[in-house]
Each structure stands twice: as structure tokens, then as C-alpha cells.
Nucleic acid binder design. Structure first.
Lengths: 328, 328
DNA sequence: TTGAAAGCGCTAACAT
DNA sequence: ATGTTAGCGCTTTCAA
């Protein structure tokens, strides 16, 4: 491994000058040239570990998400990454798998590795940010709000739930069920609240309780919930899916039974990027995942840069894409 | 930030002893207890950067993939992560976005950060592993073979192409097209070769050239290719998709035209995890992505542990799930 | 088993 | 503008 001392010797300067060349402080043009040449000759790369130990910082940010296999989060990750790498930061993607312990481990690593900041979609309400915050590192919450006073970027979940439901009501459906994520995740609870509010406003449907299901945010849970709903004495004629994977699970079950939309109405809070359905068969409230990542990364970078204004929360709205079909 | 010196002072031992406690070398039971207590009191976490600078290593491995938004690669990432975290390693996920320069940057970072090893699905044939290999770090190639003499885990791509095609032939289709990824990616070329071989063996189809398309490994490219094929004077009655996203794109176009499988035969090399199709409508040659990640991670860990046997390549086979329907 | 001390590669005072 | 030097927090000889 070549060090700045090797480069310094070859270029006939001091190690400090080599360091300066690589950090952009004032060095005479001729020495800059000599150092660059020597560095190139020796195939020198600065040792980030040493740099990081010395400066107590590193150009790395951690992105902690609950499910790396969910396209919603990977799209968000792309947004984060694009902004970060533009600014010279690398992104370490950590998959908490919705487990608080794994999440805590990654947060510890972020501290121990001197990472500059953290963007996190928390695994649950109980997530503790105490130790990371006590180090003074900036944290931005994405997708899910936290009980801490930190920057956040969230979705207007209640509005999204309302929009999805209203789209079905307008299309003529009259018994609209809801399948959402775990009730203790705020995003899931808010979307469910939106569904309830829309139904209440429409005054068309009374037995709301019977048509509400909380599953996991995964395909399997949604499948089971959909089966349950269809087995009801009075099954629904439409369903609102609380996120993209729930939408997939619900539609899978429906399709297997020959009930392809719009035979039964489907509205999804989220996008179906890999759907093979006709694009107009279901209503999607598309969530700006990438934009969310971009916004969060920008906020984090500002904080890393020393910005100390009070914590802000940015609320992003979904974009309704109505199914063109109506109830048949 | 608390250091081993703080802990040492509080426990009444030397810093070296504290270090030993955290690294499992012989220390008397009473001192171990004292150190642990002091560490807990002070909420001490060893500084990985310092450790890494001193030992010239770190318990981090890099996983470089060309498309983080492709479920195939995220499933693979899960496999890698599960094995790695079990062994006390963390995984840094790097998205090269199929760009050789981005890939090179991440490889540089892996070196500069003293990461223990790299698992990489290369962006292209031209990927250079020279500098990472010259540092002596182990590299395992996944999904795509390289021109270097390193460990690898790949799919039996030609066999997968043959299996997909044969499934369609057996179902009675007679004009089977192929849409694959870029011809210069070996996986794409091999799958195409499998398709050609299966058709040649069946002797049912002659104008192979007209029915072959190379797109990107993305949804959009596949859509365009599918449109082209349908616009042919003599359009195909079936299509083999070279990967999961190509399958999605092709099926989307077909569905939009009311040509849902099995009206037209579809076989995909890969899985459709978020499909909303009836599960028996298309043939899938399911690829063991997670297993691939697991295998690669195990191999890398062995190398990190000092294993110096000659480079091995593990070939994994896809698992055919035939569409239950036949040509209609 | 334990401690003292050197040094991993770099940056940032401080001095020139 | 440039060089000298003292650490950043840790591990690891070497001695005791």
C-alpha cells in the first residue's frame, strides 16, 4: 500500500503538501503537478480509514430500510444514492428486515464507522434513535415519522387512503374493503383512517369493521386477508390495498379466482412497477418514492453541512391514477 | 466519544487489557468483569475506524450489483446479507447502475475502506478487477462470469434458455420469439443460445433470425421489442423472455392488446415475484437468486478466512415451473 | 496474565 | 506556501 510518505518522497515535498493537494488547500502549481505525477506513478489512493480516524468523519451515509425487496424502498434508495453520490458521498444500504435489533445493530455500526448521517425508515414505533442522536449525527426520517424531533419526509397517507377509496366509490363500487399493513405502523394506520373517512363521507356503507384487515406489508399476508374477505357471507365488491405488495397479493388471489379487475374494484396506495395487468385496470395512488429519497438526502446533506435550523417535516402527496374502467 | 483509555482508567487496568477483553484473548476473569462493567457504565463502543486502520482490515464486504431495482438482485442481496451478518460481517450494497465508471468508483472505495472482500455482478465485459485483485482481496463473481481467475457462482443459462423454449414447444407453440438482454452480457447470450438450440432440435421453425431481439435488461426495452415482434408480417405465437423484467415488459404489451397468456405463449427465464397474473399462465424458469447470494457469501468468507485453493465456479440450475395451460 | 510503547496513514496546528 | 510534528483510537509486539 502506497502512502502519502511514498508520494511525498517521490515528488520531493513533505507529506503535508501531498495531503494538501488532495484536499484542495493552497499549494503552488508546480508542486501540485509534481505530486499528481508521483501519485499517478505510484497508483496512490488516499486511505479513507486513516483520514476518517483523523477527521472523525467519513463521506458515507447510512440508509436503513425495513425491506430491501420492496420496490418502493429500492426506488427511494435510488433517489438517495443519486443525490449523495453527486455530492461525493457513498451510501451504505442497510436492510433492517423490520427487526428492531437488526436496526439497532446498523445504527451502532453507523456510529462506530463515523458515518456522517443516517436516513431511516424505522422498523417500528419502538425504534430508538437516542444513541445515534447523542453523537450529534444528523438523522432524517423517511416514509415513517418518529417520536424524535428530527427532519422527516413523509407521505400524506390519510389523503392517499381517501383518494384511493373515492376512486372506487366514483366508479360505482358499494362494498369497499381495506387491507393494510400492521396497525402499529403509522403509515398503515393513516391510510386506513383515510379509507374510513371516505366511506363515512359517502354514507353508502355501514359495516366498516367487518371489511377491514391488517396484514403485514408483504404479499403473503395480503393473500390471506383477501381470501378471508372473499369468504365473508357478504364479500366486498372492491378493495383498497394499503401498499404495493398488499396490492400484488390481493390481485393475485382475485386473479386466481377469475375475478380480474374491474370485475372487482381495486385501488392501491402505491405503484405496481412490475405488474402485468392492463395499466388501466386498477387505481393507483402513486407515491413519489424516488423524490422522497432525493428530498431526504438533500436535507441530510444540509445538516451535515452544519445547518442548524429547527427540524422540518416535508409532506409529499401521492398522485392518483384512476382506473379507466368502472364497475361491471 | 469514550475510548479504551477511559474504560481502562475506570476499570483500573491498562488499555491493552481492555483491547484484549474485546478481542477474546486471555485475560483473568476478574479483570474481564471489571472491564465489561466499566465499558457498560461508559457506554463504550470500540471505534471501528481505528481498529481497521491498525489491523488493515474491516468486517465489511461490498456487494456490487448492476440494478438495485431488479428483484432478482435484491433477492440475491438478501442471501448475501443473511450469511454475512451471521458471520459478523456487514454488507455494503453498491449499485453500479450498469455503468463501468460507477462500478470502478465503488471498487476503489472497497479498497480505500479496507473492506474484506467483494461480491460482484459485473456491469459489463470490460469491468476491470485488476486493482482490487492486486490488493490481494478476495473477489467472487455472481450471476455473470468474468475474464479473471476468481471464484464464481453462475446460472446454467443455456440450459435455462432451452428449458423455457421446450416448455413452449411442448405446449404446442410453433413460432417462438426471443427477447433477451444485451448481447455482450454473457448471461443474455447464453440464454439466447439455449433458445436457438431448442428450436434447432425441434426442427419446427426456420426463420430464427427474424424472431430474435436484444433489448436492455429492463422493462422498457422489452416493451419496445415486443411491439416490434407483434408488428411483424408473421408475428410469433409465443415468446421467451430473457429475464424477469423483460418478461414483465413483454407481458404488459401483450395484456394491453388483449393477448393474455396462454393466447400467446410466454416463458420467462427468471421469476415474476410481483406478478398479478394467474400463477399458471406463464412458464417460469425460476432462478435461485437467494441461493446464489448465499453460496457466493460463503465462498467469500472462506477466502477471507485464508482458503487458498484454486478458483472454483459453482453452476446453479433454474427450476422449471411449466405453465399449466397449452396453446389455445 | 499484564503493561508499556510503537505505529497504522492521515490531517491540522504551529512554525518557518 | 511549505515543513515539522503531534495525535485520532486501536492492536500488538516485547518485556516483565
Amino acid at each position: 500500500m502506497t502512502t502519502i510518505y511514498d508520494v511525498a518522497e517521490r515528488a520531493g515535498v513533505s507529506p503535508a503538501t501531498v495531503s494538501r493537494v488532495f484536499n484542495g488547500t493552497s499549494v503552488s502549481a508546480e508542486k501540485v503537478a509534481a505530486v499528481r505525477k508521483a501519485a499517478a506513478d505510484l497508483n496512490f489512493t488516499p486511505n479513507r480509514t486513516a483520514r476518517s480516524l483523523r477527521t472523525q468523519s467519513s463521506e458515507v451515509i447510512a440508509l436503513v430500510i425495513p425491506d430491501i425487496e420492496n420496490p418502493y424502498f429500492t426506488e427511494m434508495a435510488r433517489g438517495v444514492e443519486d443525490v449523495a453520490s453527486e455530492a461525493g458521498y457513498s451510501v451504505v444500504l442497510c436492510n433492517s428486515d423490520s427487526q428492531t435489533e437488526k436496526e439497532a445493530t446498523y445504527l451502532q455500526i453507523a456510529i462506530a464507522e463515523h458515518m456522517s448521517g443516517v436516513i431511516i425508515a424505522t422498523a417500528s414505533e419502538t425504534t430508538s434513535l437516542d444513541s445515534i442522536l447523542s453523537t450529534g449525527r444528523p438523522v432524517v426520517a423517511v416514509d415513517r415519522a418518529t417520536r424524535y424531533d428530527v427532519d422527516g419526509v413523509v407521505i400524506a397517507n390519510r389523503a392517499a387512503g381517501i383518494a384511493a377509496t373515492e376512486s372506487l366509490i366514483e366508479a360505482g363500487y358499494r362494498r369497499i374493503a381495506y387491507i393494510g399493513g400492521p396497525e402499529d405502523i403509522d403509515t398503515a394506520a393513516d391510510r386506513a383512517a383515510g379509507w374510513r373517512a371516505a366511506l363515512a363521507a359517502a354514507e353508502t356503507q355501514t359495516d366498516i369493521g367487518a371489511l377491514q384487515r391488517f396484514a403485514t406489508f408483504r404479499v403473503d399476508g395480503a393473500r390471506a386477508a383477501m381470501e378471508e374477505l372473499l369468504a365473508l357471507p357478504e364479500p366486498p365488491d372492491a378493495v383498497v390495498a394499503g401498499n404495493n405488495l398488499i396490492g400484488v397479493g390481493a390481485i393475485q388471489v382475485l386473479t386466481e379466482r377469475g375475478l380480474t379487475p374491474p370485475q372487482i374494484g381495486v385501488a392501491v396506495v402505491g405503484s405496481l412497477p412490475f405488474t402485468t395487468l392492463s395499466p388501466t385496470a386498477v387505481t393507483m395512488v402513486r407515491l413519489p418514492a424516488r423524490h422522497m429519497g432525493v428530498t431526504a438526502a438533500r436535507m441530510l446533506l444540509e445538516r451535515i453541512g452544519g445547518d442548524a435550523q429547527p427540524a422540518r417535516t416535508v409532506v409529499l402527496r401521492g398522485d392518483v391514477q384512476h382506473a379507466s374502467a368502472v364497475r361491471v
